[in-house]
Structure formats: structure tokens, C-alpha cells
Design a protein around this nucleic acid. Sequence first.
DNA 1: ATGAAAGCGCTAACAG
DNA 2: CTGTTAGCGCTTTCAT
Lengths: 333, 333
Amino acid sequence: MAITTKDLAQLCGVSRTTIHRALNGTGRIKPETKEMILQVAKEHGYRPDLLATGLAKGQTYNIGVVVLDVKNRYFAQMLSTISTEAYARGYGVNITLHGGDAGTEREQLTRLADYRVDGIILSSVNEGEAYRTFLESLHRPIVSVDNRIADGIPFVGIDQRAAVREAVQRAAEKGYERIVFVCPPLDTKNRQNLYVHKERLLGYEEEMKRYPALRPECILSWDYLQKVDAILKEGKRTAFVCTADEYALEIMKDQKRAKRKAPVDYGITGFDNIDTLAYVTPQLSTISNVVDEVAKSAVEMLFAMIDAEPEVEQMTGDSQRILPHRYLEGETL
Amino acid sequence: MAITTKDLAQLCGVSRTTIHRALNGTGRIKPETKEMILQVAKEHGYRPDLLATGLAKGQTYNIGVVVLDVKNRYFAQMLSTISTEAYARGYGVNITLHGGDAGTEREQLTRLADYRVDGIILSSVNEGEAYRTFLESLHRPIVSVDNRIADGIPFVGIDQRAAVREAVQRAAEKGYERIVFVCPPLDTKNRQNLYVHKERLLGYEEEMKRYPALRPECILSWDYLQKVDAILKEGKRTAFVCTADEYALEIMKDQKRAKRKAPVDYGITGFDNIDTLAYVTPQLSTISNVVDEVAKSAVEMLFAMIDAEPEVEQMTGDSQRILPHRYLEGETL
DNA sequence: ATGAAAGCGCTAACAG
DNA sequence: CTGTTAGCGCTTTCAT
């Protein structure tokens, strides 16, 4: 349907090669011929077929992104930043979602690779050596964010453990008698990014060791609202360190019914600094995972690999970039 | 780098065509040969090059989506639903963002078309006959959502005017003495989907005519917080009909400082039913734009066109699907 | 300065 | 049941 270089060649009475030279400004070509060709091309609304171009050049000027879910504020923000950065470099972005399913994640990655994207940014639910092998079999530059997949796979993210340690420490300093960690179940196959939650749990456990007077207590189930309620009924001064803002918000909402409010009746911190927090009172104390910086950093790293790769088939070693998190003091702890 | 059908042909000692038949289960082929080929293919981890396939077949099994911004809850929800539906049909989804810029929107659409996506779902910031011509020049099935672009371009959305009329009517029934419409500026080039806001404004104006005792009053500027404050200082029973939940939330937050709360000191309604509302008290009265249904409907319509298109070069006439909105009663009006 | 020809990897029409 | 051949639209040597 659309017009091709072959058609243009016929229209202009020259060869396809000449058309190509005019269109791409490459090689020697008589200025007038070039003018003429460009003119004709424009009149007929010529546009190169990107599939054919990609096939012939082995390069598509597209990068792929695979994340859990676009409804999640964190990923939405990340996608937004990645897109902007990529567009600015003349690259397109192909966004796909795995919804927390390991199989889907592999499919999407395979699909992107088979479409010959020039590079991939991935927030994975998989990990381990076997997965590393799979990723390498795609023969594409890949940067993982959030989750460290395995040694040798470039990675950008924050130190989840250190972040939670800071939250625990701050709770301890304020003299809470109990500090409870709240997290979704880590075993079952739920639509969550488990890796980060596991790391956060480890951070909690590590930090709690520093306070002999306190006993580690975790809530790792979906009926956390009831458990929180039961704990608060026992009357001790308690702080809840939540692994995500949503859980903290749910708890605060639920406790309103019982007429208990943070920070007077209990302390609470979230994680992620989702933008919903701007409209909620009291202002939730939380941890920023500096998503913009993670995204920018990932894009930079990816393009460094893309630009380097052409000759060498190597993943640029095991570059890992750990960015500092930020504790955001609110009113709830 | 990766293995091709040519390599397989050599390895198996047959022709490329036979390989193709084995891989695609098409045409006659001896079961044993097929087995053997499949076996070899698997061993070598053969995967078809999707660019080449697309080029040869003229079909990519990909649809493109162009929306304003993925950070916007409404679009995030829409993208999520579209992706799920498309995956289920064996299609991939290529998501791109135009950020409210008309030029970028055209670029992204062109890019998608040049990548030969089989169809496109578009939430446009453009409209009019000229744009219709442009869209038709892409020679791809296109469904627009939210904004009606021009006659003849398939469209799915809600009746924005009717939705606002209902909000106004409900405010009128509750006896408010003033009903004020709150909206971002409609003239300047801001990163908004202006079409829907314009429609909502028209709905407000239409409905207000039915109440002679009330005078239409609109706030169409970014300093709406101050204006709202000034109006409330005048002491009349006032309801604010906002064109988006965010504005309503900002107002409620701002008014808290002045110790004024809905619904006792003023009435207020939002639009969109963003999920932040779940955590905010008092519960905001708002209008659901039934995004899931819009998205599903758009996908269905698009695939109907894709399935029909092969032979005929026509946009299936001007199918328009207007879905009913839903007023969600909260505590603020 | 221009053209001919081969190739990217897959598909499809037509023979045998 | 299998192979030959041509072609999708663009790029890229290598001649002329």
C-alpha cells in the first residue's frame, strides 16, 4: 500500500541505491538529484518501513522494558522517566508487563529480543543462575532494576535493607516498646515483587538485633489488619514498619474505626513514597526509593552498553549501581 | 548470532521450506521429519526472527497504544486492561506516550504504523478533519478513546457532558445556593487532555440553564485554591463540581487549613474515581468513567476491525460506542 | 556520482 | 511429501 524505495526509484528514474543515498545523506550524490528525490519522496509521503530497516541493519532503535504492572505508582513513574530519556536519545520504547508471573516475564523478554530491541530494562520476579543463563541467551544488553538477579547482570537500585534499617532505627530512637514489621506473605505466588520485600525483611531482622530490649515480630499475612488490631489492644507503645505505603494506609484507615490515630496511639512508617500520600493526613513517614534516579541511571547504563556492544559480545562486566534511599519524615512515627 | 531456518535446513539436511512447514505445522510433511526438525530446533534454541516474519507476512501481531501519560491513574488502568486483553488474543502491545504534545503524538503514531502494528488505540490531543486525514494516511485500523476526533474515526468513551450534568443536578437537588465549576485553563497549552474538560464544561453550562435561581460560575485557572477560598468566605452554601479528582482533593486539603470541611462547610464532587480516593476521608463523591469497560470495548472494536480489514481498505464506517458513566455517592456533597 | 547485486530471515506460490 | 524460486523493503559492498 505505502510507497517504497523501489517505487521512488521508478518515479525518479534512478536506482534504489541512489534513492537510499538521497534519503540517508550518505555517500556521494549530486545535489540536484538529491533535491529532486527528496521532493518526490515528500510529495508521495514516503516513509521507510521500520521492520525492513531493522532487519537489514540488525538494529531497531528501540529498547524494551519489562515491569510488573503499570498501575503500580512506582513502575508508572519509572516508565515515564525511561520513556522521556529514551525519546531524547532518538529511541522508541516498547513497554510490556509480566504481572508478577515468571513465565510471562520470560515470554515478554523473548518476544522483545526476537523483535531485536537494542536493549532491555527489566524489573524481574526471577532470580538465580539459571535465570542468568536465560537472560544471556537473549544476546541483548540488559539492565535489571529493583531486583539483583545474579552476579554479572547489571543492576540499579537502592539498598532495601539499609532503608528498612533506618526506619527501624528511627522507631527505636523514639522509644517504642514494640517494633513490628508488616509485609505480605513471602511464600505464596502472589502478584508482588517478592525480592524487595524479602530484602526489607532481612533489613528489619538485622537492625532489630541491635536492640536487645526489643523482640523481632513480623506480620506476614493478608489478615494483617486484624493482627495489628490485636497487637494494639495489648496496650504497649508500638510502631509498625510497613514494607509498602499501601499497607500503612490500609492500617491507618482501619484504625480510624477504632479511634486510634498515629502517632499518638501507635507509630507507623511506609515505603515507596507513592503520590497518594500527598492527600492523606496525618502525613505518613516513609522511605523514598528514588525511582527517578534509578530509572535515569538504568537508561544511562543501558545506553553505555548499547554503544559499547557493537563489537564485543560481553555484558560490560557486572556493573552494579546502588543509589542512596531517602527517609522522609512525616507525622506518623 | 542466533540460529536461523537456513542453519536448521543445513543441520537437518532438508530445505528451508520443509523447516518452515515443520515449525508452523502447515502443509503436508512426514511426521518423522517433523519430529526430527522440531528436535533439532529445540536443541539449538531456535526462535523465529519477528522482524523478518512481520516483513514477510505483512502482519506483526502487535497493536500500538498511544496515550498521554502513564502516571495518570486513568491511563494506567486503561493500559493494564488493554495489555491483558491483547495478550489473551496472542497479541503484543507497544505502549507509547505523547505527553500532551500534538507533534509527539503524530510522531508516535507514525512510528507505530511504520513498525506495522496491526492496529492502534489512541487517546488523542488532536482533533478535526485535518487530523482525520492524517490518521487515515496511516492505513491502519485505529480506535480512539476519550476524545472524539472526527466523524468516521471509531470511538469509545463516556458521555462527559451527561456525567457532569448529573453531578450538577445532584448538587442542585441538595439545595446549594451556588454551584461552581472547577477546571484547569482550557486555552493554554498545558499537559492535559483538554477535550474531555471542554466537554465537561459544556455539560455544566447546559445543566445550569435548568436552574434559573443559580448563576453559572466557573473557575478556570491554576490559582483555583485561592478563588475557592474567596468564594467560601462569602458564606453562601456552595458546591464545587470539579473536572478531576485531583483538584477536588487539593481543595479539600487546602480547606482543612481553614478548618472548613465537606460536606458541612461546602459541597464538592470529583471526576474519574482514582484509587487514591480509597484512602481519603471524607469519602469524595465522584464520577466513574468506567475505564475498564472503555478499554475492553476499545480492544474488542479494534480486533473486529483487524479481523475484518484484510480484504477491504475501510474503517468499518463510523462506529461509536458511548458507555454509561456512574455517579458514585460519597460523603462530600 | 550512480548502479548492480547480494543479503537480512522468513513466507508463499508453484513444481515435482 | 519435499524442493525451487521469488519476494517482503531496506542496506551495503563492489563495480563502473
